[in-house]
Computed example of a mutant assay.
Amino acid sequence: MLPRVNQMLFFEIASADEEEAAAQYKARIADELEDGLLIENPIDSASGRMKRLYLGDELSVHYLLEDGIKHYFDSHVIGFREDVVKLIKIRKPDPERITKIQRRHFLRVAADLEIAVNLSSNVRFVTMTDDVGGGGISFISDGKWSIKPGMEMDCWLLIPYKNGSIEHSSFKAEVVRVVDLVTGRKQVMCKFVAISDSERQKIIRYCFERQLEFRGR
């Protein structure tokens, strides 16, 4: 379902500045046009300050419906309109390109990301993920490590975004399944058992960008 007039949109702005890229803004939809949405001046969700947008600014947007499902889409600023207040025109999303993520279900994407794993005080290693998502990850490990289902580990994930910024997400994960590969290595599948909302959001943002990249090919 497309966003409606008076609905609140939440978004991040693509930026080479790491602090700005991580900031979240919100703006109400004031009107709907055939080729776009008119939104009010956005406000920084943390500070409450107004944010000025410029023509061409790229936005990663989401909105929440009554059923508790977040809807994500990619957009950009395509113009302005002077009204009682200045309104910003952004591209209307293509319904087929809107990503839906339920609160208890998270998108998962294939990804080769660097991850540091701490199994115990004397077993630490760095490897690459196989896939990542808002609910868990899988990674490839050397066969020499004794990893079994039910084990918990502390992890630090390196996350590069399309604007060039890099984030680190830390969490505690539990091993759900281990698959022995023909190469002698192991595929380790994990679920998150302790992760803050802000750390999880970093991973979800990466998954969102990756899915848009796949769809654009």
Rank of each mutant, 00 (worst) to 15 (best):
residue 139 F to T: 03
residue 22 A to G: 04
residue 34 E to C: 03
residue 155 C to S: 10
residue 50 M to R: 08
residue 100 K to R: 10
residue 123 V to F: 01
residue 143 G to W: 06
residue 136 G to A: 00
residue 104 R to P: 01
residue 62 H to P: 15
residue 172 K to L: 12
residue 157 L to A: 04
residue 37 L to E: 07
residue 83 D to I: 04
residue 155 C to P: 05
residue 3 P to H: 08
residue 171 F to A: 09
residue 152 E to V: 14
residue 205 R to L: 11
residue 36 G to R: 06
residue 183 T to K: 13
residue 152 E to G: 13
residue 213 E to F: 15
residue 134 G to V: 00
residue 4 R to V: 09
residue 161 Y to G: 13
residue 200 R to D: 01
residue 153 M to L: 04
residue 25 Y to I: 01
residue 27 A to I: 11
residue 42 P to Y: 06
residue 157 L to T: 06
residue 181 L to V: 07
residue 50 M to Q: 14
residue 11 F to I: 05
residue 15 S to C: 01
residue 108 R to Q: 10
residue 113 L to C: 07
residue 206 Y to I: 03
residue 115 I to Y: 04
residue 63 Y to M: 12
residue 132 V to P: 10
residue 184 G to H: 09
residue 110 A to H: 04
residue 40 E to D: 08
residue 135 G to Q: 07
residue 63 Y to V: 00
residue 64 L to G: 15
residue 56 G to A: 05
residue 202 K to Y: 06
residue 120 S to E: 00
residue 1 M to T: 05
residue 35 D to P: 08
residue 43 I to G: 15
residue 115 I to M: 02
residue 56 G to E: 06
residue 210 R to V: 15
residue 59 L to W: 00
residue 100 K to Y: 08
residue 45 S to H: 10
residue 174 E to A: 08
residue 141 S to Y: 10
residue 2 L to D: 15
residue 81 R to G: 04
residue 133 G to H: 04
residue 31 D to M: 01
residue 137 I to S: 04
residue 83 D to A: 02
residue 190 C to I: 03
residue 121 S to I: 01
residue 30 A to W: 00
residue 172 K to C: 11
residue 54 Y to M: 13
residue 180 D to S: 15
residue 41 N to K: 14
residue 135 G to M: 12
residue 191 K to C: 06
residue 197 D to T: 04
residue 198 S to A: 12
residue 164 G to P: 05
residue 133 G to I: 02
residue 13 I to R: 03
residue 153 M to E: 02
residue 197 D to V: 05
residue 83 D to C: 01
residue 18 E to Q: 14
residue 99 T to K: 12
residue 200 R to K: 07
residue 215 R to W: 12
residue 73 F to T: 03
residue 69 I to T: 10
residue 146 S to E: 12
residue 81 R to S: 08
residue 100 K to D: 09
residue 191 K to D: 00
residue 87 L to Y: 07
residue 108 R to F: 08
residue 145 W to F: 12
residue 173 A to R: 11
residue 141 S to Q: 11
residue 178 V to C: 08
residue 12 E to N: 15
residue 66 E to N: 14
residue 193 V to Y: 01
residue 45 S to N: 14
residue 5 V to E: 09
residue 215 R to H: 01
residue 42 P to S: 09
residue 45 S to L: 10
residue 192 F to W: 05
residue 139 F to D: 09
residue 22 A to E: 02
residue 95 P to F: 06
residue 18 E to Y: 13
residue 154 D to T: 11
residue 55 L to H: 05
residue 93 P to W: 07
residue 214 F to T: 13
residue 108 R to I: 08
residue 170 S to K: 05
residue 95 P to R: 10
residue 124 R to K: 13
residue 24 Q to L: 02
residue 41 N to E: 15
residue 194 A to C: 05
residue 137 I to L: 11
residue 66 E to Y: 00
